[in-house]
Every structure is written in C-alpha cells, then in structure tokens.
Write a protein that binds this DNA or RNA. Structure first.
Lengths: 218, 218
DNA sequence: AGGGACGCTGTGAGCGTGCTGAGGAGATTC
DNA sequence: GAATCTCCTCAGCACGCTCACAGCGTCCCT
C-alpha cells in the first residue's frame, strides 16, 4: 500500500513516515501544497494524509483541485483547528475523513484502515479468501484457523493480493505498491516472495498468469 | 437516498429524522439492535446511521453481522464513548466512520455526504459477445460459464477482437496492435493464432473474410 | 475445369519467463 | 561480538510459449 503524506512540520512528518512504514506501508512525504498536489496527480497512491496548513497551497485547495480533476484517492485531512465548521468544510470540499491535532496514533491508523477498506471493492474488517483470513487490525493471518507467521514483506504482499482476490496483479504493480517505488527493485524479488508465500499459505493458492502477473485463487 | 437510523433515544432519533428529511433524504428509524439489523438486511438503504448502545444487540455486533453476510452498505457509527480504543474498535469491526456524542449536526451531514460519495468503485467492464465473456481485471475468459485457458498472445488477440465485435480487423492491424509493431512478424503468425483461438472458443466464432481480415461473430 | 492466390495447420527450434537454492548485506537481539 | 532474522541479488535450470517454415486445402476467377 502506497501512502502520500503531505505535512510541513518535519518532526511530525518524520514520525508519521516511521510509524506507517513499520506497519508495512510504502510512504512518500511532501512538504508543500503544490508539491503534494503534483505527487498525488502522478504518484498512483492508495491514500493520502494531508495537512490543512501548508505553504503554497492549503490542504482544502489541494483536495478541491484533485476532485475537480476526477481523482478519487481517499484523503485523510489533518488540522490544528477544531471548530466544527472547519471540519465540515474539509469534508465538503472532498476529503474523506478528518482528524484534529493533536491526534492519537492509534486512531489515525484505525481511520486510515477504514478509509482503505472503503476504497476497495469490498470492505470487510477481516479479509477472507477461502480458508485464509487476514486481520489488518491485528496484523494476523490464519489458514484453516492455524496462525501463519509472516515477515513484514510477506504480509504486505499477501495483504495487497487479498484486497484484489481473483484479479491478476502484475509484478510492476506489486513493486509499486508493496515495495518502495523510490528504490529500484528487481522483479525477481516478487517471484522470490511469491515463492515464500506459497510455502506458507499453500502452493495452489497463488496462481501464476504467465506474462501478466499473479492471481489469488478465490 | 434512503437512510436507516438506528437509535433508541427517541428525542435524538426524532431530531435526526427531521433534520435529514429536511435535506431530502428518505429516513426510516429503528430503535433496537435486532430491529436495525433486520431493516438493514431487507431495506435496500444507501447508508446507515447506527448507535453503539442499543437494546438487544450492540451497534458493534450489528455491523459485524452485516459484514459477515457480505452486506457493504456504508455505516456511520454514533457513540457516547470517546476513548480512542473504542473508536478504533468500531472502525475495525466494519464501520466506515465514527462520531462521538455530542456531535454537531453540520459535521454529521458532512461525514454522511462523504460516505455516500464513495459509492460503487468502478470496475472495468466485462466484455461480452454471445456466451463469450472476457474480464480484463481478472484476465479470465469464459465460454458458456466454462473457463477457457489462454496464453498471453491468444488472450491479447481475443481482447482486441472483442473490443470490435462484428467489425472486420485486418492482419496488418492485428500485427500492429497485438504484436509488437517494432518487430517484423510474418502475417502467418496471425493465422496461426486465429487457429489456436478457434480451437478454444469455437470454430464458428471467428470468421475469415478472405482478403480483408477476421471478424468476431456477434 | 484449371490455375493461382490466399489461408490453415503440424512440426520443431529458440528463447523468454518464472522458479529455486545459495549467499551476502544490513538490522536486531542477546 | 556472535547469532539470528529479514531482505534482496544472482545464477542456473526447466517449462512451455512463440513463431518460422513448408506442405496442403480452399476459394475465386477466368
């Protein structure tokens, strides 16, 4: 999952990056309104965390322009203001959720997950495909009720695939969303991790579609 | 837009009904957990506003059961609690948004609109010609509901033809679009692959127009 | 009916794509 | 500082897809 964080307070930005990366997200940070807008336009992110007070262009304005261009990526707004009308303004100009600073990290994560779930075609709190279950809140995976131990990368890969069951997902797409796009990673890494996953969740769960990508059997 | 409000405090329920109706929504109110669950199952609502503290069945439980039944209508939870973990729990058990009492009516409306805006996620349409179906996202082809296994090239060829059903497509055009235009490929390759396709999707599906090209029978 | 152009298909070589085991680099733990 | 874990690269291997080739069948025109 790729996230865009637009925040000009460098300490908060760094802390968000660290925390979200630890959860397995791929995180890019922009510090200005125009920079964030540009990144959102071209970056192919799964969601965006956006401060209201930004140099160059306010968060409100960034969302408004994105929506005007028919870009619908989920946007979670952050603001120091907490008057109710400010909140309503943020939502009405196109944001999907709103948090006031100071906010709790746990709440941020929960709302972010809710947001990502909402954007997906189906949005169970626990993802389930066959006897495979993945609980994003607890970061736990079970297969026929037996727990499966996964590393961060394996988990992120399975998470991404389970949000698109039955669909073919290309190696490039996986590299963009599960790996860090800034780092050049060989496509072979995907093959290697698909191999690891197959050993843990069952060989036939994860089909190879030659020349196209991988598909999680439904 | 039809809304379901599940709330047992009659004064709050009445006020919500009045306010939302004034905004043009059609509003039904249920006062108990089981009643709300039942209404959500059968009512065909566009969204649901759900209190956590309910007689009979808690709001958490109602959402969890709905999601377990694969019902994905947007749910906005209301609660008097405001501990951060409660909020996280509500979202993780399947709600899409969360408000704590007392809440401002303006905020409620804004969040509701944000929720409704995230309607059905667009999914690339499935191409269908006769009993032949091609799903680009799943990269899957079925003929009379039976899956047809295709190689990359066969799939690309069928994809191109199915986007032009009934039209005559020349071999040159196919070489340009389905094969790599930069690489010089013999026109015979097209004939070979048309042959393969015919064996898999049915001989009469793919007509030869001598001297002009091929046509997918509609 | 005959000839020529066009299209079809079986065969097989070449190579692209994906899988795997081994191992090095970096982070973390004891 | 050693042991462990995780991530990722590399090289070798195997499968099966792709396509050229050649021979035959089919269609159309005279």
């Amino acid at each position: 999952m790729r996230l865009l964080v637009v925040e000009d307070e460098t300490r908060l930005a760094a802390s968000l990056r660290r925390g979200l990366q630890a959860e397995g997200f791929v995180v890019d940070v922009e510090a200005t309104g125009p920079g964030g807008l540009d990144a959102a336009r071209h970056g192919d992110y799964d969601a965006m965390i956006l401060d209201v007070m930004l140099p160059g262009l306010s968060g409100y304005e960034v969302v408004r322009r994105l929506r005007a261009e028919e870009r619908w990526l989920p946007v979670l707004m952050l603001s120091a203001k907490d008057g109710e009308y400010d909140q309503a303004d943020g939502l009405d100009c196109g944001a999907d959720d709103y948090l006031t600073k100071p906010f709790s990290y746990v709440v941020l994560l929960a709302r972010l997950r809710a947001l990502l779930r909402r954007g997906a075609p189906e949005r169970p709190a626990v993802l389930a495909v066959g006897d495979l279950r993945l609980d994003p809140a607890r970061r736990r995976v079970t297969r026929a009720d037996a727990e499966v131990a996964l590393t961060t990368r394996e988990y992120a890969l399975l998470d991404y695939l389970m949000r698109r069951p039955g669909e073919v997902v290309s190696k490039t797409e996986l590299l963009d969303h599960v790996w860090d796009a800034a780092v050049e990673t060989a496509p072979n890494a995907v093959e290697v991790y698909v191999g690891y996953l197959r050993r843990k969740i069952g060989r036939d769960r994860l089909e190879t579609v030659r020349g196209a990508g991988y598909r999680l059997a439904t």
